[in-house]
Write a protein that binds this DNA or RNA. Structure first.
Length: 355
DNA sequence: AAGTCGGGGCC
DNA sequence: GGCCCAGACTT
C-alpha cells in the first residue's frame, strides 16, 4: 500500500474515534504541548492527567515556569517519577527565555538540542504544536509500525530502530501532521495495545503483516533478558529390573502443572535418604550429560543421573507415581526435558537389560 | 551498547 | 513479582 493510503486511513479513524478531549489537546500552545510530552515520557495518560492540571494551574506559561524555584517544579512533579524530567524542563525554560526570547525554536534539530527533548519528543512538539512534518517514534508508534510491517528484532538495537524511524518518516503525511501524530499514539494506546490488540477495530488491519501472520504478540520483540535467574536440580532416572523409569505427576497448578516428571533433588547426596524414604534399594549410579532448560522467567540446569534400582517397595505405586515403560510408553504428558532424557537413555537401558 | 531513572498498572 | 509504559541521558 502507498504511504498516503496508510495515513489517510489513520486520519479517518482519528476523526471518528480518536481522543480529542485530553487537557493538552485544548488551547494548544507549544508550552502546553511540551509539558504534556515530557510528562508522558514513560508514563501513561491516566497517571499524567492530575499532574498536568495541577502543573498548568500553577505554572500556566513559559515565563511562570522559568521564574519558579526548582523546588516548586519538583514539588509539582512529586510522585510522577523520573525527576530529571522536571529539572530538564526547568533548565529548558531558562534557555528558551534567555536564548530564544521566550519562543520555541521551529526546527527539530534545535528542539532536540534542548535538555529533556529527544528525537521523538522533538517530533511530537514540532508536529502537534508547530504543524511541521516531523515523525515520532514512541512506544505506541513502535508497536503499531513493528506489527504492521512485521519488523523483527528488539527496537533497542540500532539497526531495528533505524528501520522503524525510516518507516515513521516515510509514512508521516504532509497534511494534518498534528492529527496524524496524535492518531498514531491513540492507535497504539487504545487499539494496538501490548496485549490483546483490538484488530477488528483497526483502520489498517487489512495490510497489517503481524495480523495476517497471526503473530501480533511477536511484535515488537521484547527486550532481551539480561540476567536470567539460574536454578539447579538433580534428576535421578531410577531404572528397575524391567527397564522402567520412575516418574511422578506434578501438582495441577504451577510449573509443569499436571505433567509427569522425574524426581527432583537439590543434590545427589540427598538421593540415599530419599530412596530409603520411598522404600527403594539403589544399585549402580552413572551421571548423564547435563540439560539446560530455559523458562520464560528462569533457567534450569538439570543434572541427570541414571540409577539402577535393585528393589522397590510397592508403596511407591500410588496414584501420582508410575514406572514408565520406555518400550511401551503410555500416552501421557511429559515435561519437555524429561521427554528428552527418556529418549536419550533408551539405548542405555536396552544394553542394561540385555546384559 | 548498556545502565539509570521511578511510580503505577497489569497479568 | 516481573514487565512495560507518550524516552532521554550518561557512561
Amino acid at each position: 500500500m502507498r504511504e498516503t493510503d496508510f495515513s489517510e486511513r489513520v486520519l479517518d479513524w482519528f476523526d471518528q474515534h480518536g481522543r480529542k478531549n485530553l487537557p493538552w489537546q485544548q488551547e494548544i500552545t507549544p508550552y502546553r504541548v511540551w509539558v504534556s510530552e515530557i510528562m508522558l515520557q514513560q508514563t501513561q495518560v491516566a497517571t499524567v492527567l492530575d499532574y498536568y492540571q495541577r502543573f498548568m494551574a500553577t505554572l500556566p506559561d513559559l515565563k511562570a515556569l522559568a521564574e519558579a524555584p526548582e523546588d516548586e517544579v519538583l514539588h509539582l512533579w512529586t510522585g510522577l517519577g523520573y525527576y530529571s524530567r522536571a529539572r530538564n524542563l526547568h533548565k529548558t525554560a531558562h534557555i528558551l527565555m534567555q536564548q530564544y526570547e521566550g519562543n520555541f525554536p521551529a526546527s527539530v534539530e534545535q528542539l532536540e538540542a534542548l535538555p529533556g527533548i529527544g528525537r521523538s519528543t522533538a517530533g511530537a512538539i514540532a508536529s502537534i504544536a508547530l504543524g511541521m512534518r516531523a515523525p515520532i517514534l514512541d512506544g505506541n508508534v513502535k508497536r503499531v509500525l513493528s506489527r504492521h510491517w512485521a519488523v523483527e528484532g528488539y527496537p533497542g538495537e540500532s539497526a531495528v530502530a533505524r528501520q522503524l524511524w525510516d518507516l515513521a518518516e516515510r509514512l508521516t503525511p504532509t497534511e494534518r501532521v498534528n492529527h496524524y501524530t496524535q492518531a498514531m499514539m491513540d492507535l497504539g494506546a487504545t487499539l494496538c495495545t501490548r496485549t490483546k490488540p483490538s484488530c477488528l477495530l483497526c483502520p489498517v488491519v487489512a495490510s497489517c503483516k503481524a495480523h495476517i501472520l497471526g503473530r501480533e504478540q511477536d511484535f515488537p520483540t521484547p527486550k532481551p533478558r539480561q540476567t536470567v535467574p539460574q536454578k539447579h536440580v538433580v534428576m535421578p532416572l531410577l531404572v528397575d529390573a524391567q527397564g522402567c523409569i520412575l516418574l511422578y505427576r506434578r501438582p495441577s497448578t504451577g510449573l509443569w502443572g499436571g505433567l509427569w516428571s522425574l524426581p527432583e533433588l537439590e543434590s545427589l547426596s540427598a538421593l540415599p535418604l530419599w530412596a530409603q524414604r520411598h522404600g527403594i534399594t539403589l544399585g549402580l549410579q552413572q551421571p548423564l550429560a547435563e540439560i539446560s532448560h530455559r523458562f520464560s522467567h528462569f533457567q534450569l540446569q538439570i543434572e541427570p543421573w541414571l540409577v539402577q534400582v535393585e528393589a522397590a517397595a510397592v508403596g511407591i505405586a500410588e496414584a501420582d507415581w508410575l514406572w514408565y515403560n520406555i518400550k511401551q510408553p503410555p500416552r501421557l504428558g511429559l515435561a519437555a526435558p524429561v521427554k528428552t532424557l527418556l529418549k536419550r537413555v533408551t539405548h542405555h537401558i536396552d544394553q542394561g537389560t540385555a546384559a
